[in-house]
Amino acid sequence: MMQLVLTVTTVLLSLAAGGAIIRIARGPSLLDRVLAADVLLAIVGAALCIDMAVNRHLNNLMLLVAVSLIGFVGSVTVARFVADRREKSRES
């Protein structure tokens, strides 16, 4: 049964990652791309979780926390950058 679950979730997560990558490529603004990259990181975390659950090990747990930390720092930094740039262009 675990192999069936692994196949089903692999297909679902692959479709989801494809959709997020399409949005990254097509997204009209920078913030859309940041949001889609965040979703892509969440999908990577989901894949790590499923790998751990199916194979019954905990090797990826720290990597999961690190991935969510990278998503946090990345989106906050880019959001600050977007806001900052607009403030400067308004003043000039």
């Binding site: 979730t9 679902l12 997560l13 989801a16 990652a17 999908i43 499923i50």
Partner: peptide, 28 residues
């Protein structure tokens, strides 16, 4: 596990179908 993977698929569908940033954030 299957429902959790479906959440990711729902987020991707929402990212592709919703019209602007706020609604996409809701899906994400």
């Amino acid at each position: 596990m299957v429902v959790g993977a479906l959440m990711s698929l729902a987020a991707a569908v929402g990212l592709l179908r919703f019209p602007d940033l706020m609604t996409r954030m809701h899906a994400a």
